[in-house]
Design a protein around this nucleic acid. Structure first.
Length: 230
DNA sequence: GCGACAG
DNA sequence: ATCTTGTCGC
């Protein structure tokens, strides 16, 4: 990626995003997911490690069974990094490997929680929406910090939240996933709405700030990164 | 023109 | 994201 061509590359990437954004659907989740996947990526030199962890968290026929921690499957894929990190274009850097990892999960996930934004993005197509649309699977954006939007400070207790706005539009929620921790920036990726996102995130988060599937994927990526170095 | 800016 | 030890706080 040479700087001289970066502007041209971003121009094309932007067009891709505008097309994908047309396909994003924010709707009420039809049924509670049974197989929930968490995904993340780690970097080492010129390579990127994408990981996906699948959990059978939610009982579709009953109330959420609480902190079930039964991992069903986990996958990891290594690729050469081919895109720089540019705010607003994260998906072109991380989505390819992550999608490869997700495709190897058995069984396929009913929902995916992505480390990044969903529609809380300048063009409403953050990495969670990007992945959700390409795979046609419900997806949630679960970011550790803000990309765009304004919001009131949510209360200090777990479960307290505030809407994230872009102008007058509600694009997500700022959620306290644990008592006294920095809030998470939650936003619909695809085939789900804000309420659905809060419902799933709260029921997949146990004793840490991040939802268990995402935490697992993060650890797996870091672990494989080490194996890659040695 | 000056900041802001997921991972 | 990554480079990195000890340390402040609940």
């Amino acid at each position: 990626m040479q700087d001289v061509k970066l502007s041209k590359i971003l121009r094309e990437a932007r067009q891709t995003q505008l097309a994908l954004a047309q396909r994003v659907r924010i709707v009420t989740l039809e049924r509670r997911p049974r197989f929930v996947a968490g995904v993340d990526a780690a970097f080492s030199g010129t390579r990127v490690i994408g990981s996906a962890c699948l959990f059978a968290y939610v009982d579709p026929s009953q109330e959420y069974p609480g902190a079930i921690k039964n991992k069903v499957d986990e996958t990891s894929v290594v690729q050469e990094v081919e895109f720089p990190y540019v705010p607003g274009f994260l998906s072109f850097r991380e989505a390819p490997v992550i999608i490869s990892a997700i495709r190897q999960l058995e069984p396929p996930p009913d929902l995916i929680i992505v480390d990044g934004q969903g529609i809380a993005h300048p063009r409403r197509i953050g990495i969670a929406s990007h992945i959700g649309v390409l795979l046609d699977i419900p997806a949630i954006g679960c970011a550790k910090s803000r990309l765009i939007g304004t919001h009131l400070e949510p209360g200090p207790r777990k479960g307290q939240w505030q809407f994230l706005y872009d102008k007058e539009q509600q694009i997500g929620a700022v959620l306290r996933s644990r008592d006294n921790v920095r809030p998470l920036y939650i936003s619909p990726g695809h085939l789900i709405d804000i309420n659905g996102c809060l419902d799933v995130i709260l029921h997949t988060t146990t004793r840490y700030r991040l939802p268990e599937p995402v935490r697992c994927a993060h650890n797996l990526s870091a672990q494989n990164k080490q194996l890659l170095i040695c």
